[in-house]
Computed example of a mutant assay.
Amino acid sequence: MFKKIACIRIGGGQVTRAAAEEAPVAVFVNGRHLTTVALSPGGFEDFITGYLYTEEIIRNAGEIESVRIEENRISVLTKNIFKRVSVKKTILSGCGGAVSYIDTQKLPAIDSDLTVSVPEIEAAVAALRAPGMLDAVALATGGRIVACAEDLDRHNALDRVIGRGLREALDFSRTFAVGTGTVTSEMVRKCLVANIPVLVSTGPPTALAVEIAEETGLCIVGYAGTPEMAVYTHAGRIAE
């Protein structure tokens, strides 16, 4: 995932630094181009399984007939090869595209009675890979991490662990997600689709992420692993 790059240090002298690799990957579903994403190399099958699921193109891993991974291309055939697909977006345009708004009625709501303790959160954060050049996201049960991934983008990392969970038949309603960086509305949407009831991050959530989570039953915990850790939505899911 990293390669050595030569550069000139300010103040003089040539040095070699590690740089994260980035691969533009075209995604084709049933012979049609769906999107192109920038990914860290490797682990594409977990990513595409999670991505198609959180975009609501498939409902489970069994709907994928085959996956062919080539350099800079992922080709997927679904069981229904005639199904036309498109990418979901949290932000919806108003009349004429002049207004943007969130229609939470079009988003799934969390259906889980899971509660997570503060020690479980602390254990999962401690087990998460330290933030570096890549974002990390994991799924945990109790304080134990059951799936973990790193990527250039935390949204892609979340798709990767959801894909791993689908392939291993995890019950997402009994897990919580823990990751690095800012929690965005798109991360909230992905957790809602997967029915992951708690989203924990070492960073803060955006105001929009909080608004959507509050209306859909998702618990957000921000600044985890620091003295500033706080529950932003649905505090009843967190036990001392």
Rank of each mutant, 00 (worst) to 15 (best):
R84E: 04
N80C: 02
T49P: 08
G97L: 01
A19F: 13
R9D: 10
V146H: 04
C191P: 04
P108H: 01
V183H: 04
T206W: 06
Y53H: 13
A136P: 00
A169C: 11
V25C: 11
E120N: 12
D113H: 12
A213I: 04
G203L: 05
R164W: 10
R9W: 09
I121E: 03
P197V: 11
I145P: 02
C219P: 00
V25R: 02
E122R: 14
V146R: 07
E214D: 13
F172M: 05
L218D: 09
T180F: 01
A98V: 10
G165E: 09
E55Y: 05
Y232G: 06
I145L: 13
Q14R: 14
V200E: 03
A157R: 01
E214P: 07
V137I: 11
P119E: 08
G43T: 12
G236C: 08
I81W: 01
S40Y: 08
A20F: 10
L192S: 09
L218Q: 08
K3L: 13
F82V: 03
V118N: 07
D46F: 11
V188Y: 03
A20S: 15
I8R: 12
N60M: 06
K3A: 13
E186H: 12
V137S: 01
T36C: 08
L192Q: 06
E214Y: 13
R174A: 10
T90E: 01
F44A: 13
D159N: 15
V193I: 15
V161C: 05
R73F: 02
S75D: 06
I5N: 09
G181C: 07
G42L: 10
Y53M: 10
T216C: 15
S112Q: 03
H33G: 09
V200L: 07
A136G: 11
R160E: 05
G222F: 02
A207K: 14
T180C: 02
Y223S: 07
T54L: 09
G165Q: 09
T226K: 06
P24A: 12
T216R: 15
G96R: 04
L152N: 13
E150I: 12
I102F: 12
V85D: 00
S86G: 00
A130E: 14
L107G: 00
A23K: 15
E55F: 09
R164Y: 13
G94I: 05
V87K: 03
G222H: 03
I220W: 04
E55W: 08
R160T: 00
A213T: 07
L199N: 01
G179I: 00
A194W: 07
T49N: 07
D113V: 05
D153E: 09
A209N: 06
E55H: 14
A19V: 15
A138E: 04
V221T: 01
I8P: 05
G142N: 10
